[in-house]
Write a protein that binds this DNA or RNA. Structure first.
Lengths: 230, 230
DNA sequence: CGACGTGTTGATCTCTCTCAATTAGAGTGG
DNA sequence: CCACTCTAATTGAGAGAGATCAACACGTCG
């Protein structure tokens, strides 16, 4: 269920690197609606993709961790459909958009990997859409915590035993979950008071992963008797 | 902003066809959580991808029209992360999952196309996530109508002058928008009474596309002054 | 002709939003 | 070392968009 980019994925993509780019936390990598012919891989740190409405409402589309690929979504010569910004100091591997084609031409293996990375990224957004569309606040928070924990844990040696880094503010969580800041806070505190998790000094600890997973209805197979379908 | 699969895309993919599959309306093509080693292209008709929670809440992830690619999201040997069902009688082009790799190996050009198709599909989900996360009911409906109209119009010669086929029930719209059936109905009627659109006998007519687009905040560039970011 | 699926509308109910105020920590300048 | 400022987290109260519950209309179909 939880596919993650392996270290090998990262190395593979890195072999194509044109140059490297470091950004501090809270910086914009790609501006919405701006023309940008670059593609990126996140080598280090956290970032996120987002879209905004003209009155400022913001939706975070996905959180990006080391190994994630950035920028295929926009057509070759078009404008960025979403912005990307850093959550922490971050290092990106940069290459030109044309190299996506070069990549496919020169190495079908890498091209295949890219297709797969792209498809995987979509499934992350799918999960998020399920949450935002159909889960209530508690369930959304639980689902987000679990998914981010798993992704982050996979990037470190101890598998999250001592918690994982968690650089999101509650505003980020709210914007990713389609909730207001205030309600996010209240719900988060509620789960924390129930002893399901703890967020401390920029780290997330799972105290009762089972309960969180149950709440989120993750691993929720036994699929139900499906509703009549059309 | 609105990329669509061209007839050429369809032909390209079709050249790899292993066999063809016809399904009546309201049939399941892929069951959630079921192992399925096939990939598909939708050649004719409408379908949709969805996920459900164990208590039956359903979220439609995206609507599929002719030319859309189906099934890359699941890892090579894994279980389907989402279901797919038909909205109308539909014809699919079927091929085995292995052929995705074969495809890349034999034709980087096609492999590149697939990457791009996959990335494009993600941007559709991105748009949907923005709607469900941050637009109110009116705005969501407006956005959905416009997007589906554009996609459907692009598939017919008259560009939608006489309306486009619209096989969704209000339940489908609700499930795609993260709304309840009742509220979807009320909002839809409201927009219809305002003369923005009309849905008749399975066809959608745009009566005031400008107003709908304004409502949905589509084409909403001039991007706003972004909020402080991290 | 009764059963069923879909659309429609009214009446509550409630989850989540908005508004407001407070606390705590980090950074800055005097 | 201490005011001052700014951001992030927190909590309470009231308001509201959308959910849920209930009926009913209409067309299709066996």
């Amino acid at each position: 269920m939880f596919f993650e980019n392996t270290v090998k994925d990262i190395e593979v993509v890195q072999s194509l690197k044109q140059r490297q780019l470091s950004l501090p936390a809270g910086e914009m990598l790609i501006l919405e609606g701006q023309h940008d012919a670059r593609l990126f891989t996140l080598l280090q740190g956290w970032a996120f993709r987002f879209k905004t409405l003209s009155d400022g409402r913001r939706q975070i589309l996905s959180f990006l961790l080391a190994g994630d690929f950035i920028g295929v979504q926009q057509k070759m010569a078009d404008v960025a459909a979403h912005g990307v910004a850093t959550l922490t100091d971050a290092v990106f591997c940069v290459f030109q958009r044309d190299s996506l084609w070069e990549l496919h031409r020169q190495s079908p293996k890498l091209g295949f990997d890219i297709t797969w990375l792209t498809a995987h990224e979509e499934s992350v957004v799918d999960d998020s859409l399920l949450s935002v569309g159909r889960r209530n606040a508690e369930e959304r928070i639980a689902a987000l915590l679990i998914v981010l924990f798993k992704r982050a844990a996979m990037l470190q040696a101890d598998g999250g035993a001592a918690g994982v880094p968690f650089p999101l503010t509650q505003q980020h969580m709210a914007d990713g979950l389609g909730l207001s800041l205030v309600h996010t806070n209240k719900t988060l505190r509620k789960l924390e008071r129930l002893g399901l998790h703890r967020i401390d000094d920029g780290r997330l600890h799972m105290l009762n992963g089972k309960a969180l997973a149950r709440l989120a209805d993750l691993f929720g197979d036994g699929r139900p008797a499906p509703r009549p379908l059309v």
